[in-house]
Simulated scan of single mutants.
Amino acid sequence: MTSSVKAIVFDTFGTVVDWRGSIIRDLTDWGAAEDLQIDWAGLVDRWRDRYNPQKARVRSGELPWTNLDELHFDALKAVFAEMELAELDHDRMMHVNRVWHRLDGWPDASRGLHRLKSKFIIGPLSNANVAILVNMAKHADLPWDNVFSCELFQHYKPDPETYLGVCKLLYLEPGAVMMCAAHNYDLAAARSLGLKTAFIARPTEYGEGQTTDLTAEQRWDYVADDLEDLARQLGC
């Protein structure tokens, strides 16, 4: 099977980077330096809770195409109001919002991707906009060949235009592209369109009490412990 796969694309938030842990660490340190008394763990969980509903508003047509930085900023202001926090000045609010550009990879991420890159075309297929993905790659040493942001397709996953958009840009049939994700829904959408699939479990993506995506829920083409394990299974 691996001989037919030419490219691997990766969900990024949760699969490649530890978004929750990164944000809590980053903003806790910054907030202490700024003398801000904010429950950053509580804030990030509320912030992320608005992620899917915000995307759904775009996918349904309620909102015109809006990139993730802009959706995040609207959600951040709503969370500040919900938590009865006074908004910070513009520069500091933007610093908080841009924390998504500064996310750290899981410990295996950079090493695993460097190994996979030796044999395959690799890139993120992510709901994040181009600026987030490019800055994150620099920050976390993610050696992408290209950035397949959903911003390029003006559709959010799991819309078919995202997965098939990668195939079109690379001039590859769906069966020559593999989707790697820690989320079963993402892989199900990709498989339904003919892409190959690889599942990576990230059981602490949402913290210690995570209850979803703890295991592979279908017989995906590959199931790996982490990205280095996937590289080993694919002969990299």
Rank of each mutant, 00 (worst) to 15 (best):
K119Y: 00
L187F: 02
L103I: 07
E205G: 06
M179K: 01
P158N: 01
V99F: 00
Y163W: 07
L164P: 05
K138T: 13
G105K: 07
Y163V: 10
E208A: 15
S118D: 12
M94T: 15
K138G: 11
T204D: 09
A128T: 10
D91C: 10
S126M: 04
G105A: 01
H101P: 13
P143W: 07
S110I: 09
G194H: 02
V177G: 01
W100V: 12
L169H: 08
E151Y: 07
D141C: 08
A128G: 15
L88Q: 15
R102T: 09
V99L: 03
N129D: 14
I132R: 06
K196Q: 08
R102P: 00
H114K: 14
G209I: 11
P124V: 02
A140D: 07
C167I: 00
L103D: 04
V134I: 10
K157P: 01
R219L: 09
P174E: 05
F199H: 03
K168G: 12
R111F: 06
N97A: 12
F120G: 06
D91I: 12
K117W: 05
A109S: 15
Q218W: 07
G112M: 02
V147Q: 06
T212C: 08
T212M: 10
K119G: 11
E161C: 08
V134M: 05
R202P: 13
L113C: 09
L187D: 04
E217W: 04
K157M: 03
W144H: 10
E208D: 15
L187A: 03
L152G: 09
L88P: 15
P158I: 03
L187R: 01
W220K: 04
H95P: 09
W220N: 02
F120H: 03
V99T: 13
A128F: 07
K117R: 15
A128D: 05
A216S: 11
S110C: 04
R111S: 14
A86M: 12
T211Y: 01
S126L: 06
N184E: 04
D221F: 01
R102A: 09
G112E: 00
E205D: 14
W100Y: 07
G123A: 00
V130P: 11
L133M: 09
G207W: 06
D221A: 02
A137E: 02
H183A: 09
H90N: 13
E205T: 14
V166Q: 00
D104R: 09
R202S: 04
L103V: 12
D213R: 06
V130R: 04
N129K: 04
